[in-house]
Amino acid sequence: MRTYFPVEELARDERFSKVNMRERMADPRTLAGDSATTTRKSRGNNNRLVPSRRDATDAARALMHGIFVGEIQALEGAGRTCHDFAVSNVPGTGPSGADSDPTTGNTVPFALKLDMARQAWDEARHVEISVKLSDWMGTEIGQFAENTVLFEAACSTDPVLRLAGVNRALEGLAIDVFTTMKDFGDLAGDPYLEFCEDWMLADEVTHVKMGSDWLRKVTENDPDRRKKALDFQNVVDKLFSYGGTRSDSEESPIGLARRFRELAGFSDAEVADIAAVSLAALDERKSSVAKMRDQAVTEMADQLGTA
């Protein structure tokens, strides 16, 4: 088995189809797709995923399917981190019996690997939960496309970058998503959904905390490596703030779960940063939508003028 596994080769059965981030976000059935923008007007500025939203059923199903494939990739990513690195201080535990990664020299503490194995089990349960929840919500496996960006964040040759990108940025996002879905279940009077999201949320807080703790420990004496990891985390955070899907604003379908993020080891400053990046992304989307609308109005006027 190879040491690093390319994202293009992630093994799936024939029901799944993979797309990139941009294609995924353009799917009109998703949270921030066209339906989200077209219905925004009728709801004033409130775009939060709540049962009263006109497209709530489709949007919640799309989000649930996104969670489902995200859980599969989180499982795969945690599994790869168990496999891809040698254990510090134990000779011959690296890929093909090496003492460390021959290309990067990277190793991981034994306890970090154990945490990743624990995470693999948790994510496997999340896949099980998501399959059952999707079924409950009337979604079929493969009904929506799969964006593989989560696993991409788990492909770095530096384990610390994986922790920053996956455990802190993406699982941080999972905390926001599960909190929103839990509230959705509560408002919709769906105790089944609320119950499942509550349990998954507890696990995700644990995973984000693992990321926060290991990032701090492993880079204790290596400020450059820590900075690189935090920069990577910011890039991933920004990528997932794309379209303003998640922010403190009610205009975003998903809120920022500040309290749970604090439990997971985010500092106040870090939460403030994510909030700022998310709001900026929302503004960016709003201005580009406004620009597109102006352009369409101009084009239509032109056409009417020439008709």
């Binding site: 799936r12 945690a78 496999h83 990743m116 696993f151």
Partner: peptide, 28 residues
């Protein structure tokens, strides 16, 4: 446990994928 974890991404069968992840933890 390293092998089980590494294989998760390589198997297309969803039920096998989940079991490998679960067993990975037990051996860890």
């Amino acid at each position: 446990f390293e092998a089980l974890g590494g294989w998760v991404a390589t198997v297309p069968e969803l039920d096998v994928k989940m079991r490998l992840g679960t067993h990975c933890y037990k051996h860890a």
